[in-house]
Design a protein around this nucleic acid. Sequence first.
DNA 1: CTCCGTTTTTGACATAAGTCAAAAGAAAGG
DNA 2: CCTTTCTTTTGACTTATGTCAAAAACGGAG
Lengths: 187, 187
Amino acid sequence: MNALFNCISQYHPISLGAWKALSRALTQVEVSKNSFLIQEGMVCNHLYFLERGCLRGYYMLDGKEITYWFGFENNFVTSFYSFISRKPGVENIQVLEDSTLWRISFEALNQLFDHHNDLERLVRIINEQYYIRLEERLMGLQFKTARERYEQLIETSPHILQRISLGQIASYLGISQETLSRIRSQV
Amino acid sequence: MNALFNCISQYHPISLGAWKALSRALTQVEVSKNSFLIQEGMVCNHLYFLERGCLRGYYMLDGKEITYWFGFENNFVTSFYSFISRKPGVENIQVLEDSTLWRISFEALNQLFDHHNDLERLVRIINEQYYIRLEERLMGLQFKTARERYEQLIETSPHILQRISLGQIASYLGISQETLSRIRSQV
DNA sequence: CTCCGTTTTTGACATAAGTCAAAAGAAAGG
DNA sequence: CCTTTCTTTTGACTTATGTCAAAAACGGAG
């Protein structure tokens, strides 16, 4: 649970009381490679923190898997739309490496908000940071060529290249895997 | 200010005290067509609410204006990255029609958070809803053809077509204006 | 109503990227 | 260690989309 505490502290410090309450509400989850944390059609009832391992989020479009997200150590994870709106989502979250997570339910989190102001602030701040990242990602997709997207990925997230297969990276970048393979072979 | 109150209420009801305090912190701003609300290189110090009018957000890439956002009545507006991180941003927000806005400064907003829990909750909830929209937008860009993007825009935001020029819509969709013109001429 | 500037359309052409298919390479399982 | 399966690469070809340039249409100002 140390990893989570450290991660939180980088966003916004919380009181000891809030941390204790949060700890009590958390459950550890171990999941193994190729299993699913979340599947489409479900209402996602939990917010997760990924302590160890690696995940992939994707949805189906015309019979193809479209990867929209990768999760690594110290990332928060959920099917955001479903978790927030309490409706079934289209997202699947697949476990790419055996992973350790901590999770809290929607109800428990909202109860904590009522009693611990600083926790709600923490979540507000984390949401804002995640929003900024998503905005940057959008800008990276809107008008860049396949090569530019790949080069940007190398710069901003080189660790992805080590741990994710080429086909999944291509999907994440919005290009075909053949194209990515060719880009890679030409430096 | 009624429009703002109504808009807020749809997300999360707030106490009368919170609303009074918020009202006092708001300033009305009138801006005229073709002026700029925010320009790149500035730190954006305000969060705006657009009561009447229409705005466009864009940034420069290789000497071209890339439109990433349109704002209409009842939208919240800011250069999000800059407002949150307190650093200069790359975004420009241009006024497309004479507009009326209300604004609150970063400092004032954060002071309100300290005294009015429900205001911070409101903002957290609004942020979450905006996050979901951005996610949907990202999915719409990642793997769709020019025609699919345009058809999706007609479905989800037909009002944009009435008020925005073709060139700017094309940019928003991540395609050239010639391509959009041709798509439109073939139904 | 006419003129001027802006926006949209059209045409011709170039090119990035997708698709399909097969071969090569790497990883996993018995 | 060999076999099977999955992933990556390569080739040939197609297609969607971008680019440049010019014409047409539109809209505001006087």
